[in-house]
Write a protein that binds this DNA or RNA. Structure first.
Length: 223
DNA sequence: GCGACAG
DNA sequence: ATCTTGTCGC
């Protein structure tokens, strides 16, 4: 999968202060409206850590749409180069993800990441960051809230309520499965909140996480 | 100052 | 995130 060349985004040796400054610039480049064509392949991405955080592991599963059949799987491990700082998680996770996408054979039309999209204090969660880098539509599906407020979500599979920060709607809180804590869906790059929500719904199987992310999660945790 | 804080 | 088994409930 071709990666958008951009020297500005290659600098990972940043102090937290510098990362925040770069983060603001990148967030301004994230497209918040739909720019998405025919979807043939969806990538599910999960990034985690091993060896007490010394190693970063990225798992990517490519699914065919609409069958959701798996067409490619890949796991890469690379030394971690940044500590965990809330709000700067993408800078810690992305190097491994990029390495995985660089090795991927399939081209993907939509990227679903385990984590937030624009539902982030400075609107640059890992899903937005990765989508921007790869110049692909992306969305984030997170298991915990990072920012924003929301009301109760009806206890019925597929129900959702907006996640907002003041007047701004960042995404939705979705009951992906009955009687299970809801997930946080937000668009990353080139997607509106509504379209991101529809894709999350369309990829729901019988589990809490939508298929792309669930399979990436599973691939990552079975060594 | 105090609490919150994706993975 | 990670360290970790069985168990209760929908």
């Amino acid at each position: 999968m071709p990666i958008l060349p951009d020297h500005q985004m290659h600098d990972w040796d940043l102090t937290p202060r510098q990362a925040v400054a770069l983060q603001r610039e990148l967030a301004a480049r994230v497209e918040r409206s739909d720019r998405i064509a025919d979807v043939r392949h969806i990538a599910g991405v999960d990034i985690g850590f091993e060896q007490h955080g010394e190693v970063t592991r990225a798992a990517v599963v490519v699914l065919e749409w609409p069958s959701l059949a798996v067409v490619e799987e890949l796991v890469v491990q690379t030394p971690t180069r940044m500590p965990y700082i809330p709000g700067l998680l993408s800078f810690r996770e992305i190097p491994a993800a990029l390495q995985a996408f660089a090795q991927l054979q399939s081209d993907v039309d939509l990227i679903m990441v385990d984590g937030h999209g624009v539902a982030h204090p400075r609107r640059l969660g890992v899903a937005a960051h990765l989508g921007l880098w790869l110049d692909r539509p992306s969305l984030g599906v997170a298991k915990k809230r990072l920012t924003g407020q929301h009301g109760e979500v009806e206890n019925q599979r597929g129900a959702y309520t907006p996640l907002r920060d003041g007047d701004e709607v960042l995404g939705v809180v979705m009951r992906s499965r009955q009687s299970v804590k809801p997930v946080f869906v937000s668009p990353g790059h080139r997607l509106s909140v509504d379209t991101a929500t529809q894709w999350a719904l369309a990829c729901l199987g019988r589990y809490k996480l939508p298929e792309p992310t669930r399979l990436a999660d599973r691939l990552a945790s079975r060594r």
